[in-house]
C-alpha cells in the first residue's frame, strides 16, 4: 500500500515525506514498546504507534522503517520531524485509536509481520 493511500484511508495528516507519497509498504507492526519494534527484522514495515518521542524516530532509523503512523492523536514535535526528515522517514498523524488504525489498514490489505 502506498503512503498516499494510507493517508486517505486513515483521513490522516502527512508531517514529512511529501516526496515519498508513492513509497509502498506491504506489512505493518503496531506497538508502543520500542524494544519490540527492535526485535522485528522485516524490511519496508509500517510502524503504527501511540508513542511519540525522539526514540520512536531513532528506533525506526535503526530498524530500517521508512514510515510511521502516530495513532490516537499523538503529535510529533518539530525535533522529531527534523530527525525524521534527516533519515527520510515519512511521518503521519492520525486521530483514530491504535485499534481502529490497524483495523482499517488490515481491511485494506496491509499484512501483519506475524
Amino acid at each position: 500500500m502506498k503512503v498516499k493511500e494510507i493517508i486517505r484511508i486513515l483521513d490522516a495528516r502527512l508531517l514529512c515525506g511529501e516526496d515519498q507519497l508513492d513509497y509502498t509498504v506491504e506489512m505493518a507492526f503496531a506497538s508502543d514498546l520500542m524494544s519490540d519494534v527492535l526485535t522485528q527484522n522485516n524490511d519496508h514495515v509500517l510502524l503504527i504507534t501511540g508513542l511519540a518521542n525522539m526514540q520512536t524516530i531513532r528506533t525506526a532509523e535503526m530498524s530500517d522503517i521508512n514510515c510511521i503512523v502516530f495513532a490516537r492523536n499523538k503529535k510529533a514535535t518539530p525535533e522529531m520531524v527534523e530527525l525524521a526528515e534527516e533519515s527520510d522517514i515519512v511521518l503521519i498523524e492520525c486521530r483514530y485509536s491504535l485499534f481502529k488504525t490497524c483495523g482499517l489498514l488490515y481491511q485494506a490489505g496491509v499484512k501483519p509481520i506475524f
Binding site: L33, M34, S35, V37, L38, T39, N53, Q55, T56
Partner: peptide, 11 residues
C-alpha cells in the same frame, strides 16, 4: 520512552 521491557541485552 518505550523501553525497559527487559529485552535490550537479549536482543
Amino acid at each position: 520512552m518505550g523501553f525497559g521491557a527487559g529485552m535490550g541485552l537479549p536482543n
